[in-house]
Nucleic acid binder design. Sequence first.
DNA 1: ACAGATATTATGTCTATACATAATAAAACG
DNA 2: CGTTTTATTATGTATAGACATAATATCTGT
Lengths: 233, 233
Amino acid sequence: MTVGQATSWQDIQNEILKRIMGREWAPGELIPTEVELAEEFGCARATINRALQSVAEQGWLDRKRKAGTRVKEQPERKATLKIPIIRREIEKQGKKYAHTLLSSAQKVPPAKVRTAMNLDEDAAILFLRAIHLSNGKPYVHERRWINSLFLPDALDETFADENANEWLLRNAPFTGGDFVFSAISADATLAKALETEIGAALFQFRRNTWNEDNSITYAELTYAPGYEMQFNG
Amino acid sequence: MTVGQATSWQDIQNEILKRIMGREWAPGELIPTEVELAEEFGCARATINRALQSVAEQGWLDRKRKAGTRVKEQPERKATLKIPIIRREIEKQGKKYAHTLLSSAQKVPPAKVRTAMNLDEDAAILFLRAIHLSNGKPYVHERRWINSLFLPDALDETFADENANEWLLRNAPFTGGDFVFSAISADATLAKALETEIGAALFQFRRNTWNEDNSITYAELTYAPGYEMQFNG
DNA sequence: ACAGATATTATGTCTATACATAATAAAACG
DNA sequence: CGTTTTATTATGTATAGACATAATATCTGT
């Protein structure tokens, strides 16, 4: 059976996805080979290959040489999170962005941060505390360690005009990161900074950003009560 | 200048990424055309095209016909979140998984859920409340609405042996979803279900799962205190 | 029956060529 | 001078053919 007509690899990709989602190709099942599919769709094998690779990348298929292509048993649901840039997030709401640097010093980070950043035991690095404001109201509290051993230029910055994250985006290449979401109770420091009560439930987002094998920066962002982080996939 | 040797599209992709991250190709800058790069790397244009498409998909490049390929100004950091399957998450920790169905009924969902699921005003659908246990201790509280108008089979299920999420994964094809993370304070119901105090900071994860234009299920997962959701990208 | 060598197979990738398509620049026109 | 038409260009995609590679199946000798 030849489908003929719609044979861009994207069309084929959609057809493949439809068959998987519609359980026409059940989880765990071996699907036809590229050559067979090429025949069915009336196109070249390369076209099928491109489509299958894309579907596999999205996590729906497992492909192995000689063994063939199999529908994933439990398609691990993947969602793509676009990590918000605070300024843009606030400005998109039509609010005015501002930020205040609360403190800046070179410090030996606590053990948890030190191990996460893979630093020596007595290494002192740059530590910042800042508050980001939306229309003058506290939006998010930031605690940030910057690996100034790896990025000595950071020590020359005041981070008064430009916030640390944006400076890092411009000046420090990165290759990846680890992220942790959690909910915490406001302590005295956070309650004061975010103008809320002690014990309030706060959304916290910690991230450790890497460049190859070097940790560049470790940030702990604690949002004012009511914050919601949205995404889709 | 010909690089020669390493010419699989993956190698080229890595070289491209290195040039972007190393600011050799600065943000906003136009990079060489595919033909020029093919010449430089000593390979076919198709190979360069495959590499550039992949890098563009990762969010580092903007490509436009005739206009060329440009490094993204502010590379929107993307992270991939693998949405945890509760049973697997618990079992991976070496703990014993169990779940208890607290209630099951057909109900008209509250306005917030109704609009999210795009339902008629008086539509009654299946509503479940359940608790998932790790070694007998409350792990996460689940409130779930299932679009039983779209999935009438769900009404025949008891969800006593198999939990709703796993049943849905097996029986309902889906094409996407919306997700919201937040931190909330435990109310009386949640405090009791999760065996914690009223006012405790809890991590909440709401998701609305779609199949094409139909909402399949809306779930609100509230985790016991101390829970952290991790991912990387 | 078993270990090791050999053949087979499906995917992975590259190449050269061709044509399609979208965006832009240049030319023609009123 | 502004607007429409035409040409140009870079990317998008398809194709057939070739060879590479990993995983499996089969054969072989002891």
